[in-house]
């Protein structure tokens, strides 16, 4: 049986992992390669690395970090943050990344998704969407790490992204991120039922019950960061809890 995935996310800045509450107030949570290897040993199903300070000058540093990670760990990983071209992706895949995620650049140039899918295959193109619920009750896409609002509905963008060739959706609720109060079940479930590719829920996971809630029919995978980095929830305990709740895990 295909299992639900638990995905620790490592935000990378200057070669170190960081994770803040609602994307501000950054705290240092260690060396990415060491942390990645630890999570792999503990039974993480996949890892996501987001370079939150990605700039052209830092691209080489990121590729070198990806190479170090790929040498060390034996589970799949995705790299994202500031990716805006076929060439950016080629460098990261050549360094050993399994998948890449695109966010703002893909929103501004949707054809980028088509180009990446044609060049590398949908299986390595993850469309990351940051969403927030508007006053009208609809979920909208936000850009630049949640700082810039758009008038695009999250569901419409997810469907378009999949039509253009995204092989997976990584959906972060800005309203839930950092709150540890649970994932956004409504929008995640809606997107998950509306697209035929896997959906990764992100933002709000605080205790094992939250993971059980979202993975029970609303998402294919769940991502979290600080609760793993600061040992508030351990992956083996989380998996054992999910298994008891009848959710298939590795």
């Amino acid at each position: 049986m295909l299992t639900k995935r638990i995905i620790p996310c490592l935000d990378i800045k200057d070669g170190r992992t960081v994770k803040g509450t609602n994307f501000v107030d950054l705290r240092d949570a260690g060396d990415p390669v060491e942390l990645a290897a630890l999570y792999a040993e503990q039974g993480a199903d996949e890892l996501v690395f987001l370079d939150i300070t990605a700039t052209n000058e830092k691209r080489k540093t990121l590729a070198a970090l990806v190479d170090r990670i790929a040498h060390r760990i034996n589970i799949p990983f995705t790299v994202g943050g500031g990716i805006s071209s076929v060439e950016d992706v080629r460098v990261l895949l050549d360094s050993g990344a399994d998948k890449i995620s695109v966010n703002t650049a893909a929103f501004k140039d949707p054809e980028l998704i088509n180009r990446l899918a044609a060049e590398f295959g949908s299986q390595c193109v993850v469309l990351a969407i940051d969403a927030k619920k508007g006053e009208d009750g609809e979920w909208y896409v936000y850009l630049n790490g949640g700082r810039l609002a758009t008038d695009k509905k999250c569901l419409d963008w997810a469907i378009e992204g999949v039509q253009r060739g995204a092989g997976e959706i990584l959906l972060t609720s800005m309203d839930h991120d950092g709150t540890k109060a649970g994932f956004a079940k409504d929008i995640t479930g809606l997107v998950s039922r509306s697209v035929n590719v896997p959906v990764i829920a992100s933002g709000g996971g605080g205790v094992p019950e939250h993971f059980a809630d979202i993975l029970d029919g609303h998402a294919d995978a769940a991502l979290a960061a600080s609760i793993f980095h600061f040992r508030e929830v351990s992956i083996p305990e989380l998996k054992s809890y999910l298994s008891q709740k009848g959710i298939p895990v590795r």
Partner: peptide, 16 residues
């Protein structure tokens, strides 16, 4: 060929 909407294609992840 998916039989239910919960079956996503591609299959991505850990299976037995």
């Amino acid at each position: 060929v998916a039989h239910t909407s919960a079956q996503k294609i591609p299959q991505i992840g850990w299976n037995t």
